[in-house]
Design a protein around this nucleic acid. Structure first.
Lengths: 164, 164
DNA sequence: TACATCATGTAAGTGGTTACATGATTAG
DNA sequence: CTAATCATGTAACCACTTACATGATGTA
């Protein structure tokens, strides 16, 4: 939320829509959580309600403390080392299903990786022409996703062949 | 827990140690959570306490219902599509810090990927000679991790060069 | 006898999801 | 006037972490 607000004022509703086409691809969250979080940030004094609009709309702005907290999080807080993957977790236990089922599981993962590649391509169009910060840096994140999906596709196809 | 117990009876303590050198690399959890979860599984009737040992040791076994649930989870439950990455989340907001700091962040990620490659190599030795199911399938997961870390290293180095 | 290791648990709190609940405004 | 969209919130629950708490057993 702080990151998105660093690009300019927005309502919870605005942030929700922006979130869905950008950050949701690397950090899913629900409508409920976004609103709750905005409330907490306002209480904590990291964002302000700058204006009220029709339908109870509240326009939030990030303030100095919020910007400081955002920068602190980016530069001083280490990203978590391990990324959770229940896809990979299942792999450890593939001996518990038949070889056919195990191969089917891995084939499905290869297919999902291919779909993911297409999904990223569709987002690409969205972000392609945009010189705002989110678009510029979102493109870097996009390329990561591309490499990841490609790497996963190759691995899943290889792994499928490993099951005897 | 069900997956680990499918390889044979074990105490919470046994599972904890086994967990730390295997599953923890794809799904971190604390000692506290493992014990709590074992208790829940026993209450739910998916595992049984087969024997008691010294120091209050409880040896758990998975039963038919537990095995059925495990297989159901593997074959019928779709892995979550999006994997959370706070590393990638930060990338979206790198415009909020100086170009030097942004490059430094990405360089650090490249270094961490390299370290991760070394870490995986060390686990490899551990798992290398083992014909038990966990070792056999753990090796598949390991190769995934290898590809992922390599992909991340390349991306981070490329991305660093993109910051003007 | 002292230290390492084995061994289990609980309480408080945070992060996150699901489901519910409500209503105003605008465009066709 | 009616449907889509704008717009916000809460309650209950589950997953997970942090910190604390305790004690038995084997081994040097």
């Amino acid at each position: 939320m702080l990151g998105l607000l660093s690009e300019g004022p927005a309502s919870g509703y605005d942030l929700l829509k922006l979130f869905d086409v950008s950050l949701a691809n690397v950090w899913p969250a629900t409508q409920s959580q976004l609103y709750t979080e905005l409330g907490k940030l306002a209480d904590a004094g990291l964002v302000d309600v700058a204006a009220q609009g029709p339908r109870g709309r509240k326009e939030y702005t990030i303030n100095e403390r919020g910007l400081a907290e955002l920068r602190h999080w980016i530069t001083d807080v280490e990203p978590t080392r391990v990324v959770r993957s229940d896809m990979l977790l299942r792999v450890f236990f593939l001996a518990q299903v038949s070889p056919e089922q195990a191969r089917s599981y891995l084939r499905r993962q290869a297919e999902l990786a291919t779909k993911q590649l297409e999904h990223i391509a569709s987002i690409r169009e969205f972000v392609e022409r945009g010189d705002d910060n989110l678009s510029v840096y979102g493109r870097l994140a996009l390329e990561y996703g591309l490499g990841l999906a490609e790497s996963q596709r190759q691995w899943a196809e290889w792994a499928e062949g490993q099951i005897r």
